[in-house]
Simulated assay, not measured.
Amino acid sequence: MGSLFTHKSQPETRPATCSFFFLIIQLILPFLSLATAQASLCRTSCGNIPINYPFGIDDGCGSPYYRHMLVCSDAGILELRTPSGRYPVRNVSYSHTHILVTDPFMWNCLDGDNFRPTRPFSLDTSTHFSLSPQNEYLFFNCSEEDVIIQPKPRFCDHFPDRCDSSCDSASHLCRLLPDCPSALSGSSCCSYYPKATESLRLMLTFCASYTSVYWKNIGEPQPYDQVAEYGIRVDFDIPVTTRCLQCQDTLKGGGTCGFDTRKQNFLCLCEEGNVTTYCKDQEAISGHNRRVGVIAGTVTAVSAAGAIGIGAGIFYWRKVRAKAPVTCGVQSNENRRF
Results as ranks from 00 to 15, higher is better:
214 Y>Q: 02
114 N>G: 04
132 S>H: 07
88 P>W: 13
74 D>R: 13
147 V>W: 10
148 I>E: 03
119 R>A: 13
155 F>C: 01
97 T>Y: 15
186 G>D: 05
177 L>I: 12
90 R>I: 03
124 D>E: 13
161 D>C: 09
213 V>F: 07
156 C>D: 14
126 S>M: 09
122 S>Q: 09
71 V>Q: 09
88 P>R: 06
183 A>T: 05
135 N>S: 08
212 S>V: 00
130 S>K: 04
109 C>G: 00
136 E>R: 12
181 P>T: 08
135 N>D: 03
168 D>T: 01
206 F>N: 06
142 C>E: 06
77 I>G: 02
143 S>M: 02
129 F>V: 08
125 T>Q: 15
123 L>V: 11
153 P>C: 12
127 T>S: 14
215 W>Y: 11
128 H>S: 10
163 C>G: 08
188 S>K: 12
151 P>N: 03
141 N>Q: 08
87 Y>T: 01
164 D>C: 07
124 D>S: 07
210 Y>G: 00
102 T>P: 13
177 L>T: 11
145 E>K: 10
195 K>I: 12
150 Q>A: 12
155 F>K: 03
86 R>S: 13
196 A>W: 14
180 C>R: 03
104 P>W: 15
158 H>P: 05
84 S>C: 03
204 L>T: 01
206 F>D: 09
172 H>A: 11
201 R>N: 15
194 P>G: 00
121 F>V: 03
80 L>K: 02
102 T>G: 12
179 D>L: 14
208 A>D: 07
104 P>N: 13
170 A>D: 07
94 Y>N: 00
175 R>S: 14
127 T>A: 05
203 M>A: 05
147 V>A: 03
98 H>A: 05
143 S>L: 05
163 C>L: 10
186 G>Y: 07
69 M>C: 12
107 W>F: 06
96 H>M: 08
171 S>C: 06
73 S>L: 11
74 D>Q: 08
